[in-house]
């Protein structure tokens, strides 16, 4: 039995969430006495694929061609590779591609599917997995009763675990001829780091008083190499774009560091960010509920604290 993992890349560079997915597939294969097989689609160099050896992936199928990919094509190609290799478990990152291709592959393979998974199975007969539920307010232990299963991961939960092996690359072709969606154009979000993948996030709320005051937030984010985010009211008023809205009805994120500036910490906001590894809250109101969910807090005026913090971090970064 083999575990097939889809390896995402951006313009030929393997994404961090793909290393995490590969790492998970290796651990899953160990737990179930199977082997882990990777799949890359499109133009990815051999040296880039070899990086997967750092997380223990020994074999990768490199599917050439396919300059344009969407979730429907990915699912079709994965199904083709899965059938040829008798794979019974299919791993995806919790990215837009993974969330799109995973359900389609499950239907194609007659498999079950579970998403937002954070750990390898606690039991293998039947397979029992933990997933995030209630937008981060809870966890569910899920028992899978299918022989074949798609697992879509929660980003930055399992993590990347190093294990050095040699990667064997096999170049194959697969048509994936799904043309029912026609691509017209792609608009990349403004500069900066994509929020769902970000390890560090600087986020701000209504306490900033106006869109014109975001300069210091962007500066702090730039100093840290962080993505910027915002609370729901801020995106509803239009101070920031919807793609920055984190929370229960926006994006749920779990970065290593989440700095919340001028955000009071409504339960809907906390739901989307509470699985961040470390939370820093900067708020002028000592009663702000966010302090109860934080690891570190500063009670003070954001307009004074943030520039100082930016200078202090610049100092250590040299």
């Amino acid at each position: 039995m083999s575990v097939l993992v889809y390896i995402e890349h951006t313009n030929g560079i393997i994404k961090k969430n793909a290393l995490e997915a590969a790492s998970y597939a290796v651990a899953y294969a160990e737990k179930t006495n199977g082997s882990a097989l990777g799949v890359t689609i499109g133009n990815v160099s051999e040296s880039e694929i070899k990086k997967l050896g750092n997380v223990g992936l020994e074999k990768v199928f490199n599917v050439g061609g396919h300059d344009y990919l969407n979730h429907q094509k990915v699912a079709a190609i994965m199904a083709d590779v899965a059938q040829k290799n008798n794979s019974t478990t299919y791993i995806f990152s919790g990215s837009s591609e993974g969330k799109g291709a995973g359900p389609r592959l499950a239907v194609k393979m007659g498999a079950g599917i579970v998403s937002e998974v954070i750990e390898v199975p606690s039991s293998t007969s039947p397979i029992t997995l933990v997933k995030k539920a209630f937008s981060g307010k809870g966890y569910a232990n899920i028992q899978l009763n299918h022989e074949k299963n798609v697992i879509v991961l929660s980003t930055n939960a399992f993590g990347v675990h190093e294990k050095s092996v040699d990667v064997h690359i096999e170049n194959i072709s697969s048509e994936g001829n799904d043309t029912s969606l026609t691509h017209q154009s792609f608009d990349r979000d403004t500069k900066g780091i994509s929020l769902p993948d970000a390890e560090l996030v600087v986020s701000a709320g209504r306490g900033l008083k106006g869109a014109e005051n975001w300069g210091m937030i962007e500066e702090l984010a730039e100093t840290l190499g962080a993505a910027t985010a915002c609370s729901k009211p801020v995106s509803d008023i239009g101070w920031r774009g919807h793609h920055e809205h984190v929370g229960q009805t926006g994006i749920a994120i779990s970065p290593n560091l989440y700095i919340a500036i001028g955000i009071s910490g409504a339960i809907q906001h906390l739901a989307g960010v509470s699985s961040s590894k470390t939370i820093v809250v900067i708020n002028i109101d000592p009663e702000a509920p966010f302090f109860k969910a934080a690891d570190y807090g500063i009670i003070g005026d954001a307009f004074e604290v943030v520039p100082k913090l930016n200078a202090a971090i610049k100092a250590i970064k040299g």
């Binding site: 079950g112 579970v114 029992t128 933990v130 539920a133 981060g136 307010k137 809870g138 966890y139 569910a140 232990n141 899920i142 028992q143 899978l144 009763n145 299918h146 509470s274 699985s275 939370i279 809250v281 302090f291 109860k292 969910a293 934080a294 690891d295 570190y296 807090g297 500063i298 009670i299 003070g300 005026d301 004074e304 604290v305």
Partner: peptide
């Protein structure tokens, strides 16, 4: 599939307050 049971996240330790 079915849900066997649920958990809630472990509560956070107290927040360390740093002087502004």
């Amino acid at each position: 599939q079915k849900v066997v049971n649920y958990d809630t996240p472990a509560p956070k330790a107290a927040c360390k307050i740093v002087d502004a």
